[in-house]
Design a protein around this nucleic acid. Structure first.
Lengths: 199, 199
DNA sequence: TAGGGAATAGAACAACTGTTCAATTACTCA
DNA sequence: TGAGTAATTGAACAGTTGTTCTATTCCCTA
């Protein structure tokens, strides 16, 4: 056998990434073999190497794409407004963006230890940049007297952990809609930074 | 070769668990081989099977031990006092207990997908019981008028995510002591549930 | 000091791992 | 229609995987 009918790099390439994303999230990077990914795509293992130099790069690309996409999406969202409004915008954005990309979020948090040191440093830098966006919002709010928090950097870590945590329990079709969950979290976020919520 | 001098089940057994805990946390369950664990203990791979029926049980035992230990420790800590005091006690306990068991915490959160369905159900039940402790505190506080939160169950998930998140960034020897971090988080926790912190 | 159980080594098993590569077929454009 | 390139197969590589089992040695008790 050889080239199959209908095959083209433009369709196979993305399918490899999709399959890897799904399987890595489901079973973990180390537990998934190249043959499993190939089988999900409907191809033999050797063909994957037209799209990635090796398994490690496949993981790294997925993580980098996620972090870069996150940063770009926030850059597009952010706006010049009051610190309270910015915090609200960030919280809504974070919940929704992460909810829509559960597999990528899971991988980006869980598979850091499977990266080479160089790749790890790159991902950590991207993550730090994103966290710094929230830190800046909090510091500005403190400066303006809108927020009451002793340690903006710690508060940022706390808030991000809290918001990302939605992914661990929220499932579509449960008691609440995502929009309702967003509302509940928004009030908690505001209270956390010392702003009394509107009713 | 055969039985080695000084060998005894009472020393080797615990060492197997310690080695597995450390290596699973470091590289992930799937990425660690039985031979690596054996090598860490200073023994051949075959000898491990005197202490676990298989690799899966080794993982499950570690996770169950952690969850049972957590529940027992909290049961020993908890006390009949005001909701605010209970929340304070829970928060301090959670931060400190998790800080002292980073490897086990990491495994208990990350390796759920590597459990068989039956084992997964058991761990999830234990986790749910622990979370219910915080839910009960929050509901009581709401009832007494001490807390101002719309959804105690969601607030419990948010607070636990926030508190557990300390493990992701806090390192001993940094700018702050753990006791200082505890203090900062306590104030945030109180604000989150609508209690104004003492200064 | 003999005997029996406890603890291990080390070899063996078949299955699977990531990766490479020559051969083969499909597609594209002149 | 024919040549060149793109995409894939399938075999092969050497190494690793979890697990089992027998032979061997150590330890403890009588």
């Amino acid at each position: 056998m050889a080239r199959t009918s209908g095959s083209s790099a433009e369709t196979t390439g993305p399918r490899v990434k999709e399959a890897a994303l799904k399987l890595f999230a489901q079973h973990g990077f180390a537990a998934v073999s190249m043959r499993q990914i190939a089988s999900e795509v409907g191809v033999q293992a050797g063909a994957l190497y037209n799209y990635t130099p090796d398994k490690q790069s496949l993981l790294f690309d997925l993580m980098r794409d996620h972090m870069v996409g996150l940063a770009a999406a926030w850059e597009h969202q952010k706006s010049d407004e009051s610190a309270i409004a910015q915090l609200e915008r960030f919280s809504r954005f974070h919940i929704r963006y992460h909810h829509e990309r559960q597999d990528a979020v899971f991988i980006a948090y869980m598979e850091l230890r499977n990266l080479t040191p160089e790749n790890f440093a790159i991902i950590e830098k991207l993550r730090g940049d994103y966290e710094a966006e929230l830190v800046a919002i909090l510091e500005r709010g403190v400066q303006k007297g809108d927020f009451s928090i002793a340690e903006p950097k710690i508060a940022a870590m706390a808030l991000i952990a809290m918001l990302t945590g939605v992914n661990t329990w929220f499932r579509e079709g449960g008691r609440l809609l995502l929009s309702e969950v967003e509302h509940v979290y928004l009030n908690m976020v505001k209270q956390t930074v010392g702003v009394s919520p509107r009713v």
